[in-house]
């Protein structure tokens, strides 16, 4: 957990929540329009590949229809859970408070690294995606800003058939 440091900011309570579900979200069914808009926004000012917007073309591909780009985010706006009337929880930034644990004191938190992994199963129109977020590990080191506490947030997505779609690991540093 620690490398080259004399003390740790990782409390036993923090260690105990590693691997526990911090938050769970469920998307509304993905629409073709959602996918088209995402692809247009990413590829602007060029046209996106027709797989992401042309239904007639997409039917001729191995997918049999439009699929979403791997990085597509179905949780950006309203979700089935939490509903639009519930307090919005940021998808990336986090706090141990969400699991009832006091976080360490720090003056800054930065996202330093993103690791995405994907299955061969793509997100398609009609899919409902479930996101489960956990803290997967802590590690510490001394850096330019002093004692650096790193936490990896793991966000696993599965579709309505419980097929694994994607896992995003976001590494945050606090100092």
């Amino acid at each position: 957990m620690s490398g080259g440091i004399s003390s740790t900011k990782v409390t036993p309570e923090m260690t105990a929540i590693v691997g526990k579900t911090m938050r769970e979200s469920i998307s509304h069914p993905v629409t073709v329009s959602d996918i088209r808009k995402w692809a247009i926004a990413v590829y602007y000012p060029q046209d996106p590949p027709p797989l992401f917007w042309d239904e007639n073309y997409a039917k001729t591909t191995k997918y049999g229809g439009i699929v979403a780009p791997e990085e597509f985010n179905p949780f950006a706006w309203a979700t089935e859970k939490p509903s639009i009337t519930e307090p919005k929880v940021a998808q990336t930034a986090f706090s141990e408070h969400e699991l009832g644990v006091e976080p360490p004191e720090y003056s800054a938190m930065l996202l330093t690294e993103i690791r995405e992994s994907y299955s061969a199963t793509r997100i398609c129109p009609g899919d409902v995606i479930r996101s489960t977020v956990r803290i997967s590990d802590y590690f510490e080191r001394e850096g330019r800003m002093g004692h650096m506490l790193y936490a990896t947030l793991s966000n696993e997505w599965r579709n309505q058939n419980d097929e694994w779609i994607r896992t995003t690991e976001s590494v945050f540093v606090r100092y």
Partner: peptide, 10 residues
């Protein structure tokens, strides 16, 4: 479309 992305880190 013949290939697929398995992982990307940044």
């Amino acid at each position: 479309e013949g290939g697929r992305i398995i992982s990307v880190t940044a």
